[in-house]
Design a protein around this nucleic acid. Sequence first.
DNA 1: AATCTTTATCGTAATATTGCAATATTAAAA
DNA 2: TTTTAATATTGCAATATTACGATAAAGATT
Lengths: 110, 110
Amino acid sequence: MGATKTTHFTDRQNKIATTMKALAHPARIAIMEYLLKVDTCICGDIVNELPLAQPTVSQHLKELKNADLIKGDIEGNSICYCINEKTLEMLQKYFVGISVRLGKKKNNCC
Amino acid sequence: MGATKTTHFTDRQNKIATTMKALAHPARIAIMEYLLKVDTCICGDIVNELPLAQPTVSQHLKELKNADLIKGDIEGNSICYCINEKTLEMLQKYFVGISVRLGKKKNNCC
DNA sequence: AATCTTTATCGTAATATTGCAATATTAAAA
DNA sequence: TTTTAATATTGCAATATTACGATAAAGATT
């Protein structure tokens, strides 16, 4: 026990849950919002922006990258991180879809 | 160490992260999608639908409720759970907002 | 080549999450 | 009022996450 029982759910459900998990931390939300705000996106800038040590930020960036939420481009010595628009579009569609379906529901019992 | 450093982030960032965390599990995604699909929403039905024991489902429902993602209405002996439309509307707006801002960006470096 | 800069990885301690058996709670039914 | 049914809570073991110091890796600078 302790580990998530992913095998019993659909691939789609696991994918959404994984993406949500990558966003389930204020530091990672802050990173996404910072990348949305700035035009350049050097890793060092993100480390300076956040109240966390460099290895911690690096770990958060790795999780966002694993979830396809950001992309990393090597630029000589440093690395340029940016938002992966495709994944955010997917999320947007998911939530818009839910809202549309909620709007069509006849009776929401509670 | 080990605990999330919430104090250094904005209330808004913490709120979004908390809501994401509540959705960061395939069982809880499955519950939300089930509630979206059906018109009645008795707790027992959800327990039958999921491949998890009753106490585990009850715990997941509690987390969704704490995050204001669902509402629970006592109906005699049983409890009727439904999606909280306001929170899902908030999420939808958040991701639509991000997509709009992404569309306006001139140069996405990567 | 030696050094500096930037980012990643390792190791580890603290804390949180997941899952369930056992049990408690509460309301309906008999 | 005893029993049954539905849901919540407790307690605990297994696993995952968070954070960071120390260190590694790799390109830039001197």
